[in-house]
Structure formats: C-alpha cells, structure tokens
Nucleic acid binder design. Structure first.
Lengths: 347, 347
DNA sequence: ATGAAAGCGCTAACAG
DNA sequence: CTGTTAGCGCTTTCAT
C-alpha cells in the first residue's frame, strides 16, 4: 500500500493533541453523545480534512464486524439484462453506504460455489445472487449461517429464501397466447438452460398456453439448452428445416433471439413473413431490429432496486439481533411489447 | 455477522491442539518452509476442511497491508461496451485471486471522485478507472500516493499514467474515409461528451479525414454532447431537417446510433437509401439491425484483459518495493466492420 | 469532556 | 519442528 498515505487516526490525534478515542468519536458523528467540546470537534474535523485523512475501512470492518460491503454474483455481467440489474443494485447499495463486490460466475455452478466462499471470507454483510440455478445445495449453508441473502431472477422452490423474480410463467403464457390469437398453430420454443426455474416456468407457460387453447403439444418443438446466442442459432437452424416448418418461434431469451435471427437470415427467410417470432427480454435495440421485435419485457430496473432494499432490511435486522425478517417472495409482472415480428395468419 | 460461523484460526488450532501460528502457516502453504511435520499439516488441513473454516480476509487485509482487492470505476455498467470490459477484468482478477469492487460513476465526475475516496478507504491494491474524463485533478492524488492505477477507454494527456485505449483517431479516420470513398460529401458527426479524449479523438479523426480528402469542414455538421441514446435521437432529428440533408452520419457510439436510428425511422427515412450511417462500437446485434450496421469495432475483451495484467504488474512491483514499473500506453487498433448501412453514391 | 487499554482475526519476528 | 508475542487501525468499555 502506498506509504505516503500512512495517515491513521493516530496521526490525526497527534496533530490535534487529543486521543484517538476522541478523533474516532468526532469522525463518527458521536461528538454530541460524548459531549465533546465544540472546539475540539471542530479542530479534529478540520485537521482530518487538511491531512486528507481517509478512515481505514478494513480496520473498521474487523473491529465492527460489519463491512458495509455486499457481494453480487451474476452469471454473465456482459448480458445487458444482468448488467442493468447490477447497475441498479450498485447504485442503491452505494446510496446506503455499501460497496459492491462483483463476481461473474460465468454460468458455472462450480465458480458460483467458489464465489460464495470467497465472499464469505470477505465478510460481506449480505449477498445478492443470481444463481446458475440447477442446484441449490451450495447455497443452503449460507442460509443456515444467517447471512442475509436475496436471490434474483432464478429461484429454488426447495429453498426458504427471499427472492425477486419476474412472472416468467405468465410472461410466457401471454406471449404464446398472443401467437395463438394470431392463428399460429405450429409454435416452436427455443428454451434456455434446463433445470433452472426461469426456463422451467417459461416452458411451462408455453405448454399451458397451447393446452388452454386446445392445441396439441409436440415435444420435439421444444429445443435448446442454454440462454446463449449460439444455442439460439442452433435451435433455429434445426427448427427451420423441419417439415412442416413452424410458423412461429417463442424464444426464451434476448441472446437466443439474436442467434435465431442469424439462422433465419442465413436460410434466406424473413420475419414475420416466413416465420413469426416473439422473444423474452426487451432491449434498447428491440425497436431497430430487421423486424422490430415483439418482446416480453421484464422490469429490470425494479429487480435490482427491490433486491437491494430487501437485502438492506435483512442486514439491519441481523445487526440489531432482531427477529428474523419474514421471507419475501416478490414476483414482478412482465409486459408484452407488441412490435412487428408476429404475423397474423389467415384462419 | 452470522455467529454460527464464528470459526477462527484459533478454533482450528484448539481443535488440532497446535498454535495459531502453525495453522496459519499450513493454511498459507508454508508448511514446507517452516518444516512442519507432514502429520501436523494433514491434521490441520483436514480439521479446517471439516469445520468449514474460511479465513477472514478482512483480518488478513489489515495485517498484510494487501487486500487482494481491486477497485473498478465505470461510467455506466449497463452499457454493453463497459460491461464487457468489466467482465474481462473481473474474470482475470479472480484468476489472480483478486476480488473486484465495482463502482458505477453514472458519468458524473463528483460520484467518480467519491468512489475514488471510498475505494482508497477500502484499501484496494489497485484501481482501474474509466474516467468520466473531463477533468483529471481528482485522479492526480491517487498517482502521487503510488496507488497502482490503470486508466481505460479515456485518458488524460496531462497525466503520467498507464492506460489502455482504442485507436479512436484512426478508427474515426477510417470510418469517415470509407464514407468519402463511397462518394459522400456532406457527412455529419454526432459526437459524445465534449472534452473527453475519446470524443476529441473521434471528432479529430472525422475532421482530418475530410481534410485529407480535400473536403470542406462545416462545423455545424458536428453536433451532440453525450454518448447516450437520447443525444443520438436529438442530434439526428436536427441533422435530418437541414437542407441539404447530410448523406451520411458518423456516430461516435453504439447508444448514439440507436437514438439516431429512432429519429431516422420516425422521419420516414431509410438507411442507407436516404441516409448512410456508420457507428462506433460493434455489438452482438449489429448484424440484425433494420439495416445491418457498418461499425468500428473495438477490442473490448482485450481492453479489460490487458488493463488487469498491467495493474497486476504494478501491484507486484509496489509490494516488492521494486523500482516503479514503466508507464505503459497501450493503444489497440480498431477494425472497420463493413455491413450494409453505407450506400455508394454516384459520383 | 476526555483518555487508557483491550481486542477484532490474522501473520511474522523472534525464540527455542 | 513449534510456540509466544506484538501489532495492523480502529472502536468501545471503563475509568476519571
């Protein structure tokens, strides 16, 4: 560490000619409480400013058992869906005086597990995690240690834990219903990572919408295995070569849609004339795609904001040894944003 | 903090029946160095695992004056350009055993300044900062305190500091030259935030390309004031209503381009038939826009990767009290990705 | 109205 | 081969 910044509370105390105790009290706004003279207070404050003294948060953390730090684990921060969430979490955390340690799990459960350990070692006051989502065994211990925790985007039915998610089921149901209302009958679904709640609910919404409208379910029209672009490309490539070709694709993520568009263009087909499409996740560019994309928008800003607020509540309870706050299960509604990627077929 | 996780090195030592020193040594892989018996070593290791002991990094940080933590300040983490950089930094940092504290400055110099203070208080081992970029006065002290620092994307000529940036000048020059080669003569430029190096160099590249090809410079064709979407919309709106209308727009950011596209569509015009466009920043969706966008691609993955490596070098020098490593100025080439948004005009 | 001293959990001299 | 002890910078109890 830079030795020129060797300023400690001691050096401030020396300069003013008081004890470290007094400096600490003043700097923590407890001058009133300890009835420190106005004069002393002012001198301490001024000297600290002059010296450019910055309190050592590492030492404070050790002493206080509170680091004013939260951990954030995200599967892929370069995905705009997640980075928007991260942004809102960081901004709200900072407002509350908290720093955010970021960990990108790269959609890898093992890395997620390591991050969890790492962040515990760093004594974060709480954790917001968007889990890879296939298993939850590694998350349970965190819960048992009473470390404040909020899960976002994906959740685990078996885990008794506060979460903030979108209404994926209804979002998917609405989307597929919209396709059906436009007289589509052969509707494919490119799914994301299997055994995640997000995927499960979106696919279930798809199934149920078909069922509700009395359409048969063809399992071979459900294809795919990750939320990435490549998976979208591969899935669409396969679907487009089926006979009869599906008249519409329901895509379960923004990245999948991009990949699928690539495949569709490559096959010389056009949206929505040859094939209709509807995609989860609204994006700033959705309006400007070759065919403006009809999407299911999630409240990304709100997810981050709410997640942090909920975490903050838990942290404060924890610190005050209060009764544990209740477990919150927040489900945010989605919204169908209709553009031009769905064609109304003739009956 | 969760008291059930009250495990300290002491508790491990007690259980094994050795001193904390021994446990510390074993856990830090110094068993060899201190010639600790294989048997003791194994027992310590096993007991620690059994107890689920996680070393307290806050205490280690205080003692070692090395926190294995870096600070990352970014103007807008939700912008895919920055989030890609952040991702690469985090991934490489973690590989090196470093955690990343993220700070979103929201393109606000004041917040950037506060983040700087905050991160110093947290005793980060080093700092990677993508500055808002108009002024550098608040960054100088960091340099003087010998805190390892790497600046990315934007830089300050007056600051003697390692940086990693794109060759913005040449990128812009190439882009505008390409327009000129396609016989465009009235080329507008929607610029970003004034008084940032990025903007300055991109605009300079624009000017010089015109000059080099013997075209007159019309200052009123340079418009705009931020890198955001809204600025692109406003800028394009104004430009489109000029007579004669420019035949091409050079847009200095991905977000500006999106906004500009909005304005162009709204005016009922099409790219490139009515107006050509070329944009800084290649994006996963660039291929799938209404008109596939011709872009100037930056090496985003490399920026993050190189920035961390450079920071790591500085940190290691600092720790070993070596001579200061030399200041590196890395300029990465850009690449023109030709798609369909530029029309070849008749001579 | 202020200070002395203990201790948060860890590591590194120094000692044997 | 292992342990004792001091101390990183801070806050807080207890004392005055």
């Amino acid at each position: 560490m830079a030795q020129s910044n060797a300023e400690t509370i001691q050096s401030v105390a020396d300069k003013v000619g008081v004890s470290t105790t007094t400096v600490s009290r003043v700097l923590n706004g407890k001058a009133e409480t300890y009835r420190i003279s106005k004069r002393t207070e002012e001198r301490v404050l001024q000297t600290a400013t002059e010296m450019g003294y910055i309190p050592n948060q590492v030492a404070r953390g050790l002493r206080n058992k509170r680091t004013n730090t939260i951990g954030l684990i995200i599967p892929d921060i370069s995905n705009p869906f997640f980075s928007t969430i991260a942004r809102n979490i960081e901004i709200n955390a900072r407002k509350a005086g908290c720093s955010t340690i970021l960990s990108d799990s790269q959609e890898d459960t093992q890395l997620e597990k390591e991050s969890l350990r790492l962040l515990q070692g760093r004594k974060v006051d709480g954790l917001i995690i968007c889990p890879v989502g296939e298993i939850s065994a590694h998350i349970e211990p965190v819960l048992h240690k009473n470390i404040p925790l909020v899960i976002i985007d994906r959740y685990f039915p078996e885990l008794d834990c506060t979460y903030v998610i979108s209404d994926n089921y209804k979002g998917a149901f609405d989307a597929v219903s919209y396709l059906i209302e436009n007289n589509h009958r052969t509707i494919a679904c490119i799914q994301g990572r299997a055994r995640t709640s997000v995927n499960h609910e979106r696919v279930q919404g798809y199934r149920d919408a078909l069922k509700k409208h009395g359409l048969p379910l063809d399992e071979s029209l459900i294809i795919g295995e990750s939320f990435g672009k490549k998976n979208g490309y591969i899935g669409a490539k396969i679907l487009l070569n089926r006979t009869p070709r599906p008249t519409a694709i329901f895509s379960t993520s923004n990245l999948i849609s991009l990949g699928a568009m690539g495949a569709i263009l490559e096959e010389g087909l056009s949206i929505p004339d040859d094939i209709s499409m509807i995609s989860f996740d609204d994006q700033p560019y959705s309006d400007y795609l070759i065919t403006p994309m009809t999407t299911i928008a999630q409240q990304t800003d709100e997810i981050g904001h709410i997640a942090f607020k909920l975490l903050e509540t838990q942290i404060n309870h924890e610190m005050n040894q209060d009764m544990k706050p209740r477990i919150e299960r927040i489900v945010l509604p989605t919204k169908l944003v209709i553009r031009k990627s769905v064609k109304t077929l003739k009956k």
